[in-house]
Design a protein around this nucleic acid. Structure first.
Lengths: 336, 336
DNA sequence: CTGAAAGCGCTTACAG
DNA sequence: CTGAAAGCGCTTACAG
């Protein structure tokens, strides 16, 4: 592949590379005729700017990077698209970096800053446990989306997430108000900041308030995947402890749970009522549709952009907690 | 954020930047003591190499780029992971580029080559219609995965895909052998190379062979999404033409179809038997499980790597068609 | 085994 | 409105 450089364009157009650079960067101080001539040469030669070279020299850019870990998380991928869409309308420019599940998001952020310079960072689905120092080192406007970073108390850090604890309470309310007393829980408890623990603790708190005892044998450990939900539910059923309701820490887990029940000849919602979290598209396509507590993606996206703007204008970071929305579905029924 | 450069490392370690560069690039010709000292300084200062600068100077690299369009396609995302996994074991190094649905894959390829130099390219889910000239211009080893590029007849181009036509035939066989005669089809017909048209034509061909007439009112147009399948099935049902079997061009479409049937009070497989294509994880978690023609991801991945290796060694590109695997499921039943 | 120097393809003051 | 020159942070012959 023959490589066309700015030098080739300059020669063909009969101008200096400085002028070509000006055209490339859409600067105003170029004669309209010159600009047009250069642009014609650019498209005729099929010139593409070498971003390496451009970024090497640039001291700073107006790009904000979105760092998204994991390539299979459709929820976060959609959120990223939405954030970029809303942000572009407000004049932001983005670099979306999809990094490996096992990669370190803060190292990725540093590398990206090094290479592209940045005006800000948006992290989707970050794990913040013991990472305060890493965040401080970045010293850039940082917005954490879908995770509460308020405990960090850093001026240039903001966050927006759903109120997972309250969301868990609501899930419990939905089952309790329909007469369910024996409720199974699928998920895990890690640290204070993780969404699984928050959601489950919300459920447990509300059960306590309603004086409904929680049978520990009805808790089954699992990660955020369908397979995890499937396995955990099988383990649960093996214990032979009866339950009529099941709350899973995510819709994916709930889908796995539903499958495991089906495999054992149990039916949803006849035998077990199921509730998930997140409100993924998939859940709407389940038969019956999965009842869930939906994360308001549009609002999360809009707030993310709002917070990034505030940080860039020098304001102290805010930490926003949004309520989830109850989305009912055929996966639950009333026992009353 | 303070930026540490190779110059800082060199000064701290008391060597030239050339030597630091040698350490960074893991060259053998460095004194072990020097190497260790430099490495210590690198980790002490938290130095990260500026890839822009590195790539600017490098004439070529041993990186192969994987270009994947669309951020929501879990099937292709998994395939990419698998390809990288297998490839790494064989000494390949990869750059995975996730590009926007609307972006041009060949422009992305050219830009990537410009910026990172490349030893080869792997395209996942490309659309090759009228793109022969673009491929020729790349003039690099190119492997097209999940699409048959044999019609291009270019020496440095190889491809691996499933035999979609045969796969369509098999889908038809599965329903016909169970006594289904009124079969609905969901998908679209574009050009010769697209998988939807190939699959559907396979179905139609086999129906002709079995002298089972196809009622055109049982074809409903849709894209590759769940929502598309849902809408198309509603349109189908509105026509009030009875059918007992349904073949959708993908599992996602089949999931949408199943939902639409459910919404109208119809049951799978009691009222309608459904078959999809691809074999996504999702399908296994449907209740009942979705019968499908699975694309053998592991084999596709392994062949992709094999073909890339062959091209890099100067061999002429081969075009491999793999059979799909029948994965039965509760979504179909026999009428016999 | 090590270093000085050229240069990758751009951008950016600076001068006119 | 335009151009010559310096320099971004690396790699790579080349010389020793």
């Amino acid at each position: 592949m023959k490589i066309v450089t700015i030098r080739d364009v300059a020669r063909e157009a009969g101008v200096s590379i400085t002028t070509v650079s000006r055209v490339l960067n859409e600067r105003a101080d170029v004669d309209p005729n010159t600009r047009q001539r250069v642009q014609q040469v650019i498209s005729r030669l099929g010139y593409l700017r070498n971003t390496n070279a451009a970024n090497l020299k640039q001291r700073h850019t107006d790009f904000a990077a979105i760092i998204l870990r994991g390539r299979r998380n459709v929820f976060l991928a959609d959120l990223a698209e939405r954030i970029m869409e809303i942000g572009r309308e407000k004049g932001f420019r983005f670099l979306l970096e999809h990094i490996d599940e096992r990669a370190d998001i803060f190292e990725a952020a540093r590398r990206l800053y090094l290479e592209r310079k940045l005006s800000g960072l948006i992290f989707l689905g970050a794990n913040l446990k013991d990472r305060e120092e890493d965040v401080r080192r970045l010293d850039l406007p940082c917005v954490f989306t879908t995770v509460d970073a308020s405990f960090m108390r850093l001026k240039r850090v903001a966050s927006v997430a759903v109120d997972n604890f309250r969301s868990g309470q609501e899930a419990a309310d939905q089952l309790l108000s329909r007469g369910h007393r024996r409720i199974a829980l699928l998920g895990y408890f890690a640290d204070r900041t993780d969404s699984s623990g928050m959601r489950l603790n919300g459920v447990l708190e509300r059960m306590r308030q309603h004086k409904v005892p929680f049978d520990e044998r009805l808790f089954s450990d699992c990660d955020f995947t369908m397979e995890g939900g499937w396995r955990a539910t099988q383990a649960l059923l093996d214990r032979q402890v009866p339950f009529t309701g099941l709350i899973a820490i995510s819709d994916y887990v709930a889908i796995g749970a539903k499958k495991a029940l089906f495999d054992r000849g149990l039916s949803v919602p006849r035998d077990v009522s199921i509730i998930g979290f997140d409100g993924i598209e998939q859940g709407r396509y389940c038969t019956p549709a999965l009842a869930t507590l939906r994360q308001p993606s549009d609002e999360i996206s809009a707030v993310t952009i709002q917070l990034l703007g505030e940080l860039q204008r020098g304001q102290t970071g805010r930490h926003v907690l949004l309520p989830t929305q109850w989305l009912t579905g055929g996966s639950i029924r009333s026992l009353l």
